[in-house]
């Protein structure tokens, strides 16, 4: 049987942090190392370390992993190797979701060209947070709570389903803020893949089936809202490749 798994390439602090954070979502986490012998000796974490090289021999993965639902992280510290790895993975597995770590804009572009679905722009994100701390401390605090911490405030994606009394109405007509206690930040239209429209711009958008709403609210309110409006969805990863 093929497993749904998270494949992390590179054995380093990044890999361990990722593994720690996603272990609830994925039952199988494999860390692949270029220098497996020493790393296995050093390994103090609970995660399994496998070896790999950059020579396109991915027999293990193609035999054991359910590629559609798995995810790969390339977090090698050498940039060139990381790009090479991404290309190699993409050329072998067309449907695999690859998230790559980049340290600057240039590598980010190269990684996307190499076929990564998503790039984590580490330096930019860190810089963003620092500058936000300086200029907009409250915004930073609130975002951090919404995104990363297990606070009461949550952000969620809700898809509109067909049996819905709001279909055909415009956004400005409905006051969900008061009724359900949630704020619509943005929405993704069904025919557009990775464009957001912020709700401040779409006063007159007519709600139709398949729209995805990005809402912020308290956990309980969000669950309530989902029951009425549609279903919480996990957008499929392939939609996010550019």
């Amino acid at each position: 049987m093929k497993n749904k798994a998270a494949l992390i390439f590179g054995y380093n602090d990044y890999a361990l942090e990722i593994a720690k954070n996603i272990q609830d979502e994925y039952s199988h986490i494999y860390i692949f190392s270029l220098h497996s012998e020493e790393d296995i000796l050093k390994n103090k974490s609970d995660f399994e370390i496998k070896s790999f090289d950059l020579s396109d021999k991915w027999d293990y993965i193609s035999e054991n992993i359910d590629l559609e639902n798995s995810i790969a992280f390339s977090v090698l510290e050498d940039i060139a190797e990381n790009i090479f790895l991404t290309i190699s993975l993409r050329s072998s597995f067309e449907t695999l979701n690859i998230i790559a770590l980049s340290n600057n804009k240039e590598t980010a572009d190269k990684l996307l060209m190499a076929g990564a679905n998503k790039v984590i722009p580490l330096v930019q994100t860190t810089a963003e947070m620092i500058s936000e701390m300086m200029e907009k401390p409250i915004v930073k605090e609130v975002f951090h709570k919404i995104l990363f911490e297990s606070g009461e405030l949550k952000i969620s994606q809700v898809k509109i389903n067909s049996s819905n009394s709001y279909l055909g109405k415009t956004l400005s007509e409905i006051d969900w803020k008061v009724k359900y206690g949630v704020i619509v930040l943005a929405l993704v239209l069904e025919d557009m893949n990775s464009e957001f429209i912020y709700s401040s711009k779409i006063k007159n958008h007519i709600i139709s089936e398949g729209d995805i709403f990005i809402i912020v609210g308290y956990e309980t309110d969000i669950i309530e809202f989902e029951k009425i409006i549609g279903s919480r969805i996990n957008v499929h990863w392939s939609h996010w490749s550019r």
Binding site: I18, L122, L147, Q157, I214, V235
Partner: peptide
């Protein structure tokens, strides 16, 4: 600020709620 830790939480976010994460990233 611990960038390596940030990678961990970002990956979690990207797996769970990619769109929501994008929205806030874009907002920022």
């Amino acid at each position: 600020l611990y960038p390596k830790g940030l990678v961990g939480i970002i990956s979690k976010e990207l797996i769970g709620r990619p769109v929501a994460f994008e929205v806030i990233h874009a907002l920022r």
